[in-house]
């Protein structure tokens, strides 16, 4: 699923006129991934249909949203920092006491270009309680282009500038051409797989930690409820779910409860709902 050349050209000219940022050919994946949420919110089946209407009607507010979506910079490493601090300081150490097989399973459910699953693995390596443990990471995304990028582990200089401490950069990356590549020791721990959250999940076992951040905001209430219910079914009874800062389960799926975790919050399945977990 790639944006059509016409739609890409329209967006490219728009962004260049409004922001002086040039989207080079090859950035189709970026345009697609940034505009999918806007297209979905506006009720269009795909980005092409959304851009077609935009180019005809030229609604100023929507044009501005498109420019903003494209000019916001690449995803950060350790985005929002607090969830990663919570993992290192409390969640991973707690799991380390309760998992006799010295193995933790983590699912990054909308991994985009890979910064999130790699950041989780780097955090696990910085957690002394997990020294010698196996961290089994499943990273999924709707976009095959994004998955390919994430799997390559290849990042530009601009991308590694975003939120990555210099000590972490030199420890977990190696130079590769003009950019950097994540170390094989880290990338070999991740299994990447395409997954549409709106469809039934394939068999994938249960997870101790699930990252589902800044995804639910793009879905309607019924879909959010359905996704959260299905996430419960793949979650260990004492597992931990991270949502985006602007997202919550309250009023959507009340089988979850919000629990403070450092400066962040995490969602856990309420005791009375744990028995129904398969």
């Amino acid at each position: 699923m790639t944006i059509s050349p016409d739609a890409f050209t329209f967006v490219r000219e728009l962004v260049r006129a409004e922001s002086a940022i040039v989207l080079e050919p090859g950035k189709e994946y970026l345009v697609e991934s940034r505009l999918v949420p806007l297209a979905r919110t506006a009720g269009h089946p795909d980005v092409d249909a959304f851009v077609r209407e935009l180019s005809t009607r030229r609604n100023p507010a929507t044009l501005r949203l498109v420019v903003e979506a494209l000019t916001t910079n690449e995803t950060s490493w350790f985005r929002d920092s607090d969830p990663f601090t919570a993992l290192r300081q409390s969640i991973f150490p707690t799991l380390a006491k309760t998992r006799p097989h010295r193995q933790i399973r983590v699912w990054a459910a909308a991994c985009s270009s890979g910064q999130e699953p790699y950041s989780i693995l780097m955090t696990a390596q910085d957690t002394p309680e997990l020294a010698g443990w196996k961290v089994d990471m499943l990273a999924t995304d709707l976009s095959q282009e994004m998955l390919d990028r994430a799997r390559s582990g290849q990042y530009s200089q601009l991308e590694v500038n975003r939120g990555l401490p210099a000590t972490t950069l030199v420890r977990h990356f190696e130079r590769s051409g003009l950019g950097w590549r994540i170390s094989p020791a880290l990338s070999s721990q991740v299994q990447f797989r395409q997954l549409n959250l709106m469809r039934p999940f394939p068999p994938m076992g249960t997870f101790d930690v699930v990252f589902l951040r800044n995804v639910l905001i793009y879905f309607d209430l019924a879909t959010k409820r359905d996704i959260l219910r299905r996430v419960r079914q793949v979650m260990a009874p004492d597992g931990h779910l991270f949502l985006g800062a602007a997202e919550m389960t309250m009023g959507v799926d009340d089988a979850w409860e919000r629990v403070p975790a450092g400066r962040s919050s995490v969602y856990r399945i309420r005791e009375e709902h744990r028995s129904c977990v398969s």
Binding site: N73, S76, Q157, L158, V160, N161, R162, G163, P165, A166, L169
Partner: peptide, 16 residues
């Protein structure tokens, strides 16, 4: 040095 920012960079990268 405590940190290291490589040019070119964006304002967001510097603030992060």
């Amino acid at each position: 040095a405590h940190e290291y920012l490589i040019k070119p960079f964006t304002a967001d990268a510097m603030l992060e």
